[in-house]
Amino acid sequence: MAAFGAAPAGNHNPNKSSEVIQPPSDSVSSLCFSPRANHLVATSWDNQVRCWELTKNGASVTSVPKASMSHDQPVLCSAWKDDGTTVFSGGCDKQAKMWSLMSGGQPVTVAMHDAPIKEIAWIPEMNVLVTGSWDKTLKYWDTRQSNPVHTQQLPERCYAMTVRYPLMVVGTADRNLIVFNLQNPQAEFKRFSSPLKYQTRCVAAFPDQQGFLVGSIEGRVGVHHLDDSQISKNFTFKCHRDNNDIYSVNSLNFHPVHHTFATAGSDGTFNFWDKDSKQRLKAMSRCSQPIPCSTFNNDGTIYAYSVCYDWSKGAENHNPATAKTYIFLHLPQESEVKAKPRVGTTNRK
């Protein structure tokens, strides 16, 4: 697969994406779409959880702020309930909140940890919420109860998590990758070291649950199959690099229809890839700031991404009062996200 060659830094919106109005006042930490409608939630370092209602108009998207709620400290993660009525969020205040957004209810605390909550997911097949924390635990919650139904010890702090029932993959500090079969969630299915040499930043389960992607701070993605008989299909590739400059891969998202995937990085670009043909389908123009997070809507017709400071240069280099934060909405063309027929040799590395 070809190494990524970044374009020169330009304006904040070189891809002419639609812009979400009234964005957060500080960096965006997560984005997630409702599984039932084009409602987009963003969590941010200004302690807020915000929701917009989006409407597609031809080649553009308009956004209307719908509601917002607060945590006591920066919010790091978010997830929707499968019925599209409720949003979950977790963050540096060490608690997860449940917000019945569609009914206008007040947020309530449904989970607690001893350190910030980095990852959160609703698992409809189990009717539980799972939270991953820097306290080195995973906790499963029945939201009607104050105590977790199960606490799973992790070897290190939780940095990344992906769930496609029955597969769950957790990436922790020290490059640990822990695989769980959620039909037996109290036991690890498999644990191994990341195929990448540096810190894990993001993971994404294959749509068919047969493996996962892992991205790291070294500008590289690993494609890993769980079945040992498929080991020959495992590979890694370079991306989000500009000559000698190497940037973090911050986000991995599979397209819900075509099952290709997007990467977004600290170089301010996002790209679409096909893992099966080992090809990059489309390289987008470089924004003026990093892209910390991104997500597809439920039918893959909208790709949301944030452009803002990503903390890679430390808190001392960030001033929320002067920094700009953006959320953009890209409408992928089919040619950008649908795998091309395999003809002749592949472009691989």
Rank of each mutant, 00 (worst) to 15 (best):
Q152V: 13
I291F: 06
K139Y: 00
T62A: 15
T322D: 12
A79V: 02
P8M: 08
T263G: 11
H71T: 00
E218Q: 13
D174R: 13
L252D: 10
E125C: 13
N250V: 00
M69C: 06
P320T: 00
T109M: 13
W122F: 15
N47D: 03
P116T: 02
M161S: 08
T325P: 03
C92P: 05
I291V: 04
K97S: 15
S89N: 02
Y140E: 05
S44P: 06
S30L: 01
F237N: 07
N181G: 12
S63Q: 14
E218D: 11
F235I: 02
S89D: 01
S277Y: 03
T131Y: 01
A304G: 08
N298P: 01
E218L: 00
V149C: 12
T43S: 15
Q153Y: 01
T269N: 03
C202K: 03
N319D: 15
Q279M: 01
S232E: 14
H113Q: 01
W80T: 12
S248R: 12
C158W: 00
C202S: 04
K313G: 03
Q210F: 11
G5A: 14
L196D: 04
A121D: 14
Q186M: 15
L154K: 04
I217Q: 07
D228I: 10
H255E: 05
D208M: 07
A315M: 10
W122G: 13
V49D: 03
V130P: 14
F254P: 10
I302R: 09
G171D: 03
S60K: 14
L226E: 07
T269M: 05
M1T: 14
K16A: 13
C308N: 13
F261E: 06
P35T: 12
A115P: 01
S30D: 11
V170D: 11
I178Y: 11
S63D: 08
I291D: 09
S70V: 00
L226Q: 06
M126D: 02
S103C: 03
S60W: 04
T295H: 07
K190I: 02
K233Q: 15
R241P: 00
R286N: 02
A59Y: 10
E125K: 15
Q106V: 08
T236W: 07
M168E: 03
A339K: 14
T86F: 07
I120H: 05
K324H: 11
A160C: 06
E156C: 10
G171M: 08
K349L: 14
Y247S: 14
G300K: 08
S34N: 12
G171I: 02
M98Y: 01
P332A: 03
Q230T: 07
A42D: 01
A321K: 15
A339F: 05
L54E: 11
S34Y: 13
D135R: 10
A264S: 12
N253T: 04
S146A: 15
